[in-house]
């Protein structure tokens, strides 16, 4: 009796099983989000996180990406930062560097023409939108390199 070759049938069966498993997983949500509840520390503050006392303005090489305001300037001065600068000076410095802030426009989540965020190498320092991936990347300083 001639022995039949069952390999092709087995391969087709295997292929069907794999396809079914992939299809099932993609439609029924076997995906599990393993994102930790513990966030990396805040590296860069902005209007949404609130100012971190003692942090220097971004334009002076610091980690504060808060929108310039008279109130913020007062806080800087209290912390002994940028003592020789006024609020107007700070705004002018950002404008001269081509960096946009919430004073120019709001709510772009750094996706505007000036984006990405300065932290990511762009020219936009508008407050990113909380509850988005971009917000977390900008605040933590942990992100994939963006080509710009």
């Amino acid at each position: 009796m001639q022995r039949t070759n069952r390999m092709p049938i087995f391969l087709i069966f295997l292929l069907l099983v794999i396809t079914s498993v992939i299809f099932y997983c993609s439609t029924t949500g076997t995906f599990i989000n393993t994102k930790s509840i513990h966030a990396p520390p805040i590296q860069y503050c902005n209007d949404a996180t609130g100012h971190i006392p003692g942090s220097k303005p971004w334009i002076l090489g610091g980690t504060c990406c808060c929108t310039p305001s008279a109130e913020l300037m007062e806080q800087y001065h209290k912390d002994g930062i940028a003592l020789d600068l006024t609020y107007e000076d700070l705004v002018r410095m950002y404008r001269e560097a081509g960096i946009t802030t919430d004073l120019d426009h709001k709510g772009c989540n750094n996706m505007c023409d000036h984006g990405p965020h300065v932290v990511k190498g762009g020219k936009c320092m508008c407050t990113p939108t909380p509850g988005t991936k971009n917000f977390e990347e900008v605040v933590s300083g942990v992100f994939e390199t963006v080509d710009k």
Binding site: F31, I32, T49, P130
Partner: peptide, 28 residues
């Protein structure tokens, strides 16, 4: 539903200033 879990960092809550966070539910 395990695949729908979401975690969002650095959500700020401040005194005397209501915070509104808008989110979208979606698998994965």
């Amino acid at each position: 539903l395990k695949g729908y879990r979401q975690v969002w960092y650095y959500i700020s809550v401040r005194k005397g200033q209501p915070s509104i966070l808008i989110l979208r539910s979606m698998l994965g």
